[in-house]
């Protein structure tokens, strides 16, 4: 009797803990997602409802007109394709160079490592607004403005230093013996990098892909300066062009923002599985 009741208490306590845990997670996510929810609410209900006090927490009526006007009047699909290309190219450039850079910073021995690490961070310390003038001048002299691949080169340059540091951080957690073992097995340094280190640092690779993809997706200043023809406008510039001289159609901008945010989120969802894959790979290493 006594034994079973303590077991029941134990079980109850565990249940209570579980409920508290879920409540915590739920509360946390709700707080984080509320602005997003609010954006959805106000882009699908006529704006006038949101301009009451107190505003209704649940939409009073639903209308997709802001979305319809958006799709009918603006080349949304073209903006999307442009941004996907831009973000994709940027991510590839960053992945290639960041792997090499972090590899050199973590596993290779050479002089000037600290200086290199510092140099990388130094590149991040001047606001883009000040860097954009010389970059523009250079691109114009080279005849490179108004091209998405050229824009992706700039975007990649600006996010690469951070990505090298993040990936170095991930490489640091791999025991050096693993790399040395690969060398003893007859691999070249680059061979060891590709065959041994990369599979083990999957979470880090995922992290920097997401970082660079999101950066290129949202980057605005270079895009709006270097791209002038409407045909190759990426999403960020398209979104900004909804706001005009004397007016901002809030509902349409919210709708557009919502729609365009879906893609980075999907990208993250797709790639997130590899964080788990990376976890199991990490388990092998011990």
């Amino acid at each position: 009797m006594a034994a079973s009741s303590t077991a029941a208490v134990h079980k109850l306590r565990r249940l209570g803990k579980g409920v508290a845990f879920y409540a915590l997670i739920l509360g946390f996510c709700a707080a984080v997602l509320f602005p997003v929810y609010w954006m959805i609410v106000n882009s699908i209900q006529p704006l006038n409802h949101g301009m009451q006090f107190p505003p209704p927490l649940i939409p009073k009526e639903i209308s997709f007109l802001p979305f319809i006007t958006l799709f009918e009047n603006f080349p949304v699909a073209r903006w999307l394709v442009n941004s996907l290309l831009l973000a994709g190219m940027t991510t590839l450039i960053v992945l290639a160079l960041a792997v090499l850079g972090s590899f050199a910073m973590t596993f290779l021995r050479w002089r000037g490592k600290a200086a290199f690490g510092l140099l990388l961070l130094m590149t991040q310390m001047l606001p883009e607004a000040l860097v954009v003038i010389p970059v523009y001048a250079m691109y114009r002299n080279l005849g490179l403005s108004d091209s998405l691949p050229a824009l992706s080169l700039v975007d990649a340059a600006f996010i690469l230093p951070i990505c090298i540091w993040i990936l170095k951080n991930s490489f640091d957690s791999i025991a050096e013996e693993i790399y040395e073992a690969a060398l003893i097995d007859g691999c070249s340094p680059l061979g060891a990098l590709v065959r041994t280190l990369l599979p083990l640092s999957a979470p880090g690779l995922v992290a920097i892909s997401v970082v660079s993809f999101f950066y290129a997706w949202n980057e605005y200043l270079f895009a709006v300066t270097l791209v002038t023809s409407p045909d190759i406008r990426p999403v960020a510039v398209g979104l900004a062009s909804l706001k005009v001289m004397l007016d901002t159609p809030i509902d349409r901008v919210l709708a557009a923002a919502l729609f365009f945010s879906i893609f980075p989120v999907i990208f993250y969802l797709l790639i997130q599985r590899y964080i788990v894959a990376g976890l199991s790979a990490g388990a092998v290493k011990g």
């Binding site: 003038i133 523009y136 001048a137 002038t228 062009s241």
Partner: peptide, 24 residues
């Protein structure tokens, strides 16, 4: 032909161009 930037960025763009020598 049509060319240009959204209103909010228009002045900046012209400024950046003028600083690199000439306006487009």
């Amino acid at each position: 032909e049509e060319a240009g930037a959204p209103f909010n960025e228009f002045t900046n763009n012209m400024l950046i161009q003028s600083q690199s020598g000439k306006i487009n």
